[in-house]
Structure formats: structure tokens, C-alpha cells
């Protein structure tokens, strides 16, 4: 038996919209800790890891660990039928082949339920080791999104370099080159607008802008984004989900051929 009641249903709507273009099908793993997901894109270049902790739900019942395979496009179709202020409850039975989404309007005058078919997904689960990163940049998520969008009109790849001067985003294309440097800016009264750079050593890595632009679909989930870089690891782009958990995107770098 599974019953998860999420008062801020819009969070789940936003999470699915943020990942559905990157990942088609995924297993949602439910345990006493919370609802989690790990899935790679079809080319095995990017990975999304989601955690919604049990404490973030108003009611959380998960009698035994369960993995539910869902098509994210179908899930999105159903969740789009929920209002932004609706309370969403996810219900499932052990061993069942369907899951039910129940939507309640804030004043309880409209209650809908949508039953979705589950699917068997044979997914590869990667072991992601805890790592020390060479540099961690925290910046406004809207700023990061703007930079990725702007640079993708000029080039296909971005070089992200962190030095003590700041974080530099560089691209190159047929029409020319672009450099955007963001310096550390600790705005004390507005922490969400701050850019904070923690650097153990300088690092410079190249990434496909197409994937970074896809990750920025999570921008509305969090005011700030954290970019963790190491020269020998995929970058981690993390959006915290208020009081509940996170959505993390991992992207393997490009190397000179």
C-alpha cells in the first residue's frame, strides 16, 4: 500500500515538466526515506536524480519498498489536469499495475482521480560516488538559464571555467565567440540573488549546451542553482526543492578529440 499526499501539488507538476524531455520512461522508487528516481537520457550522457523526502509530504505511507515504472509523457498529461493549487495524492497497491493520482482543489469542491498504467522498465542504475569537487558555484537559477539560452544562439558547446576571478562561460560558433564572466557577489539581504564561488582549484570543462538548456527547465523549482565541477567528473547541476529534496542533473563533459 502506497499513499503520498503532497499539499503543494505544483511541485510534482514542475518536477515532471523539468525532466520529461530528457527522460522518456523512469522507475520511481518509493521507500521510507521518500520518493526517488534515477534515470539516464537515451544516449547515456546525462542523468537525472530526484529526491522528494517523506517529511515533505503531509501524509506518507509506503509499507514496503516499491519501484514503479512510468512513462513521463503520460504522467505529464495526467498531472496537467491538476490545478496549480491542487493537493495531489499518489495511491498504489503492492504489485498493482496501475497508480492513481488524486487531485483536490484547495476548498475541496472538486476532486478528480486519474488512474495511470505502470510499465516494466529495465533500467541501469548507476552508482554515483560521493566526491570532492574542485569548484562549487551557486548562482541565481534564472541567471544560469539566461546564460545557457543566450550562448546556445551562438555555439553548441560551452566551456565553464572557474578561477579566483569568477566563473566564465565561453562559446564559439560560426558567427563569432562569446564570454560571460560572473563574479562572486554576496548579497547579504537577498541570498537568492547571490553568486558564491567556492574554489579548491581552478577547473575548466566543456559541455553540450543542448543538455544544459534542458536542465534549466527546472528553474522554476528553485531561486538558485548549484554547479559542482571537477576535472575528472561529470558536472552536477542541482536545484533544491524547498524543504523536500532536490533534482540533480549529471552531465558528462566533452573532451578534445
Amino acid at each position: 500500500m502506497l499513499e503520498l499526499r503532497l499539499v503543494q501539488g505544483s511541485l510534482l507538476k514542475k518536477v515532471i515538466e523539468a525532466i520529461k524531455d530528457l527522460v522518456t520512461d523512469a522507475n520511481f522508487d518509493c521507500s521510507a526515506t521518500g520518493l526517488s528516481l534515477q534515470a539516464m537520457d537515451s544516449s547515456h550522457v546525462a542523468l537525472v536524480a530526484l529526491l522528494l523526502r517523506s517529511e515533505g509530504f503531509e501524509h506518507y505511507r509506503c509499507d514496503r519498498n516499491i519501484s514503479m515504472g512510468m512513462n513521463l509523457n503520460n504522467m505529464s498529461k495526467m498531472l496537467k489536469c491538476a490545478g496549480n493549487d491542487d493537493i495531489i495524492t499518489i495511491k498504489g497497491d503492492d504489485g498493482g499495475d496501475t497508480i492513481t493520482f488524486m487531485f483536490e482543489s484547495p476548498n475541496q469542491d472538486k476532486i478528480s482521480d486519474f488512474e495511470m498504467k505502470l510499465m516494466d522498465i529495465d533500467s541501469e542504475h548507476l552508482g554515483i560516488p560521493e566526491a570532492e569537487y574542485h569548484a562549487i558555484v551557486k548562482m541565481p537559477s534564472s541567471e544560469f538559464s539566461r546564460i545557457c539560452k543566450d550562448l546556445s544562439s551562438i555555439g553548441d558547446t560551452v566551456v565553464i571555467s572557474v578561477t579566483k576571478e569568477g566563473v566564465k562561460f565561453t562559446t564559439r560558433g560560426d558567427i563569432g565567440t562569446a564570454n560571460i564572466v560572473c563574479r562572486q557577489n554576496k548579497t547579504i539581504d537577498k541570498p537568492d540573488e547571490a553568486t558564491i564561488i567556492e574554489m579548491n582549484e581552478p577547473v575548466s570543462l566543456t559541455f553540450a549546451l543542448r543538455y544544459l538548456n534542458s536542465f534549466t527547465k527546472a528553474t522554476s523549482l528553485s531561486e538558485s542553482v548549484t554547479i559542482s565541477l571537477s576535472s575528472d567528473l561529470p558536472v552536477v547541476i542541482e536545484y533544491k526543492i524547498a524543504d523536500m529534496g532536490y533534482i540533480r542533473f549529471y552531465l558528462a563533459p566533452k573532451i578534445e578529440d
Binding site: 539516464m40 544516449s43 547515456h44 550522457v45 546525462a46 542523468l47 541501469e124 542504475h125 548507476l126 552508482g127 554515483i128 560516488p129 558547446t157 566543456t206 553540450a208 575528472d232 567528473l233 561529470p234 549529471y250 558528462a252 563533459p253 566533452k254 573532451i255 578534445e256 578529440d257
Partner: peptide
């Protein structure tokens, strides 16, 4: 030119 690496080059299967 750049070559795209895969995640499996960094992370092992669980």
C-alpha cells in the same frame, strides 16, 4: 573538435 563522453566512463553500475 570535441568528443562527447558517456556517464559510464565515470560511474559504475550498481
Amino acid at each position: 573538435m570535441y568528443k562527447q563522453q558517456k556517464l559510464s566512463a565515470f560511474f559504475g553500475c550498481k
